[in-house]
Design a protein around this nucleic acid. Structure first.
Lengths: 235, 235
DNA sequence: ACAGACAACTTGTATATACAAGCAAAGATT
DNA sequence: AATCTTTGCTTGTATATACAAGTTGTCTGT
């Protein structure tokens, strides 16, 4: 099945940039030129360009044109890391305790995050990730079983959800939010928090081609975890 | 002069959410309903909704509708944002209180962050950023005066450090870290925190061509601020 | 009471068209 | 040679229209 036209145009331009055929700061074909080339309307071409602008790939200016941006993004905030890999890169031991693995009816927050009707059954896992025997992440994850029917059959002590989902529903898009929170007593005990210790909470939704696959709540002890990010402008 | 219609619709919806007339997870009027209400085309209403979705204010699902996402303030990890712009994009008023503006000798942490010898004099500013009169960021910033001699001559009630530094030392690289922290009593009072409320702290170092320019500690009330990020993989 | 069909609603994608506003290049005038 | 005007290009905003795809509610038949 053919992708939408605006997706084709986005992919085309992204490939030109990746292959060096459109260098940084180079002028990109105009909306009219792309419309002619792809035999679509100017508004369809415009949508492709607008989305690439929002992704930081292009920049544009009324009257002047559209240009390849120079920003390249790196760092753990900008990619979706497998937590086992993060820990191993630090030369540390990673273990998982599987606390729960059930089907349950999606509440409103989970349903909206996954684009489902509230009450729809989803797969839910609760995992405690340990680094050198010390808890450093409590992961609650909700997965759309229509897209990943085998999710609850996996042994997540042996393979992280991220690893499994990467195989069966490769990531195409992610949205995440980071906040500082105070957690409930049970979570505080699981994570072995100090008194009044805050947590860093990451809400992460991921999509594959077929739709929203996973909604994860990742909770880290504030004293033992921080996120890093690194932006480089190549000028 | 009137704002574009799609901007009016965005502001209208943002106000409803802020005033509590549209609660978290509430259903938002449909594209057709908004088009009728604002006497515009469905595509214009759609553009307003689409942009609010991209800002993380709304979430939507084909066939189900459009819903209010989280009410927490959001920033972006993917770009280095000017906080005044973040606040204004939410249709909110941004003010700055200048708490301190001095030269001081860099301690070890600051010196390392800026690539200087401890004891070197740097420019230091302490600013309280307010959104609708409510504190939402305490900014401590240390700037290398060798690279930006005019830093302490600026009026940061009128122009944020980010805006000024963008002019005189354009950003080429940034590194940041995000953590959840408990702050000292003075900071808690400045930010008007609730009891035991944690904070989201962002440590941000930025470089221009000539070297490390700025080291900023940004502290946000955990109850009123979260960071968002959006990744798209073109596979 | 339940299941299936259908209608009505929603968002998603797309096209054609029009005018506004900004910018740059070319041509005309001084 | 310099300046001004005009033209042609660009992006920005907007509308009308159409069909696709997903969801929900209602109605009908069993």
């Amino acid at each position: 099945m053919a992708a939408p036209k605006f997706i084709e145009i986005k992919q085309h331009l992204t490939e030109l940039i990746e292959q060096g055929k459109l260098a940084e700061h180079a002028k990109v074909p105009s909306e009219n030129a792309l419309a002619a080339q792809f035999e679509c309307s100017r508004m369809t071409a415009r949508r492709a360009l607008t989305e690439l602008v929002e992704q930081g790939v292009l920049v544009r200016s009324q009257g002047q044109g559209t240009f390849v941006a120079s920003l390249k993004s790196q760092g753990s905030m900008l990619t979706i890391r497998n937590i086992a890999d993060e820990v191993k890169e630090r030369g540390r031991d990673h273990r998982v305790q599987v606390l729960a693995k059930t089907r349950l009816a999606a509440d409103t927050e989970v349903a909206i995050a996954l684009g489902l009707t509230p009450g729809t059954e989803v797969g839910h896992t609760a995992l405690l990730h340990l680094e050198e025997g010390l808890p450093m992440q409590l992961e609650h994850r909700y997965v759309n079983l229509a897209l990943v029917p085998g999710y609850l059959d996996q042994d997540f002590a042996l393979q992280t959800p991220h690893e499994y989902l990467s195989q069966v529903a490769p990531l195409t898009e992610a949205h995440h939010e980071v906040e500082a929170v105070v957690v409930d007593r049970a979570t505080a005990e699981l994570l072995q928090l100090g008194p009044s210790e805050p947590c860093l909470r990451i809400l992460r939704r991921t999509w594959s081609r077929s739709g929203a696959v996973s909604f994860a709540r990742l909770t880290h002890p504030g004293s033992r975890y921080r996120l890093g990010g690194h932006l480089v402008m190549d000028n």
